[in-house]
Design a protein around this nucleic acid. Structure first.
Length: 508
RNA sequence: GCUGGGGUAGCUCAGCUGGUUAGAGCGCCGGAUUGUGGAUCCGGAGGUCGACGGUUCAAACCCGUCCCCCAGUACCA
């Protein structure tokens, strides 16, 4: 009896995924599209490392032995014992967004021409609980203008994302960019008597209030009222502590949230009245007015970019305008269930992020496209158009092993003609080789044995055509002997014939 | 974190009030068919029944603890 062998179980770490050819090809196409548009708006590419000193990533240092706080972090292996754990170089962390590394770059290379406009595609990692559409490793496409005080940069962020989505095939009306302003929001809270200035402190009354507002679409208006007041017990029996505001205060906040309108000017006017007594609130409304004006000049009306007083965008580092892009078109998955994809774009102005490093206030604004979510949405929308996942176009089968020289010279000729081609590198009969081609989805197979070599010709098998013909053939002998979809070509016509068949295949 | 549901083959799952050697379908590998894909037929591999402890003559099944997964909820710079 054999010893039990401990075998590793093949599995993924929670929240991490494998991605196969079909999705990768689609993502590649999608990224190419948004990259082009981003460059058209004057952004240039930047790449930064996946690993950063943790103090570059945010203001939190991980807890001693349980590095958490949403970031994957590790002890710096270069530092040996004896180094204190509060040494700034002690912890390394995987980046959880692309904005913090950008702030680091701007602070580190201070001679960069400002405004510094860069885009960056990359994976980011978050140590948090995965859920539907939420992963621990995912792609972001981020673009920012650092050193840009003008609201033109904010308006253009929104405009550019509209262009991207439309270039990807989303029709106008299938998506919407929603804009709010944190200063205006803060002004409303101020008018309601909440004056704490540190809106990033999650335990502050302001923090609780902002979180309550952020939940509007999930818990509804009454839910927000409860969360702003004493607290709320949800259907699962879970209790969430409220902000402890009184009715009058809550009414003021609701008045802000209710200032919705299809007209951006109307929203600005309503908000302007509501926050008239707050200096910061007025600043926020003024920012919105400027964005409205710039958007109008650029040609983007409220059917694409609307002002939405309910948008909060986390507690984050945002200091002014905030934006959020969502897919509004109803998407039904393969089970016929309605799916929503959360926001596929988010961003805003963060005037203090670079300041963390340099002490210099540096205005900056930008946003991130959630590549994976967008891809998931497109996959469901575009199900039928999902293209072939195979990049090989021709399989050279090996029939006669004594003629390897011929096969290898042949495959190089096919490749030189610009056709993706491989020889069969496994073991097995010609039947196995064709089965491989069939299962991989390779459209064409080249067959040549001693007969063909002595006649100077090749058999081209059109596997795609064969697949369709096979549907009507029951009898195996007929299927084999008939050799449907197969033709013999002279050597000098081979390349042109292959190209012709592939052109037909691609056009289909 | 909290509430509820669940972990049996690569996948989807069956397995009675505890009973002898734990099953099916799909997938995988091989053969029928080493000069031809699909369908069909035949054969094969693959399981510490989530982990550990307990009850029992006997545990996939009952009890306890933990781990993980799913749904909701909270958090998410």
């Amino acid at each position: 009896m054999a010893e039990k062998i401990k075998r590793p179980k093949a599995r993924n770490y929670k929240g991490f995924r494998d991605t196969f050819s079909e999705d990768i090809l689609l993502r590649r196409k999608m990224i190419e599209t948004i990259r082009e548009i981003c460059e058209r708006y004057g952004f240039s590419p930047l790449e930064t490392p996946a690993l950063e000193y943790v103090d570059s990533l945010g203001k939190f240092l991980p807890e001693e032995h349980t590095p958490e706080g949403g970031i994957f972090s590790f002890k710096n292996p270069d530092l040996s014992s004896g180094t204190r754990e509060d040494h700034p170089d002690w912890w390394l962390g995987m980046r959880y967004d692309l904005t913090a590394p950008l702030a680091r770059v701007v602070a580190q290379y201070q001679d960069l021409p400002k405004p510094f406009r860069r885009y960056q595609l990359g994976q980011v990692w978050r140590y948090e609980k995965p859920g539907p559409g939420r992963f621990r490793e995912f792609y972001q496409f981020d673009f920012d203008s650092v050193g840009a005080a003008s609201m033109i940069a904010d308006a253009e962020s929104c405009a550019m994302v509209c262009d991207m989505l439309e270039a990807l095939g989303f029709a106008r009306g299938d998506y919407i960019i929603q804009v709010n302003d944190r200063k205006a929001l803060q002004g409303a809270l101020e008018c309601a008597g909440l004056t704490e200035s540190d809106i990033t402190d999650e335990n502050s009354q302001v923090g609780v209030a902002l979180r309550a507002i952020d939940k509007l679409d999930r818990v509804g208006r009454d839910g927000v009222t409860e969360l702003l007041g004493k607290g709320r017990k949800d259907t699962s029996g879970d209790y969430t502590e409220g902000a402890g505001l009184d009715t009058k205060q809550i009414d003021i906040i609701h008045a802000y949230l209710d200032a919705r309108s299809d007209s951006r000017t109307e929203v600005c006017d309503s908000l302007g009245k509501l926050v008239a007594d707050s200096k910061i609130g007025c600043e926020g409304v003024e920012e919105l007015r400027q964005i409205d004006s710039h958007l109008t000049d650029l040609g983007y009306s409220a059917d694409r970019v609307r002002f939405e007083p309910t948008v909060v965008r986390g507690l984050g580092y945002y200091t002014g305008p905030v934006f959020e892009g969502i897919i509004t078109k109803e998407i039904v998955d393969e089970k016929g269930k309605k799916r929503s994809f959360g926001s596929i774009f988010g961003g805003g102005r963060y005037d203090t992020l670079v300041q963390r490093f340099t002490g210099q206030k540096t205005p900056a604004t930008g946003g991130s496209v959630g590549v994976d979510r967008l891809l998931a949405a497109m996959l469901l929308l575009d199900k039928k158009k999902a293209h072939n996942s195979c990049t090989t176009e021709v399989l050279i089968t090996i029939m006669d092993k004594s003629r390897l020289t011929d096969y290898l010279q042949l495959v190089q000729k096919v490749r030189a003609a610009g056709i993706n081609s491989e020889v069969f590198v496994g073991n097995g009969s010609i039947g196995k080789q064709l089965q491989y081609a069939d299962r991989r989805g390779i459209p064409l197979a080249l067959i040549a044995g001693s007969d063909e070599f002595s006649n100077g010709e090749y058999q081209i098998k059109d596997l795609e055509l064969g697949r369709r013909l096979a549907a009507d053939i029951e009898d195996r002998d007929e299927w084999l002997k008939g050799r449907p979809s197969q033709q013999s070509v002279k050597a000098d016509e081979l390349m042109s014939k292959l190209k012709e068949l592939l052109a037909d295949y691609r056009a289909k």
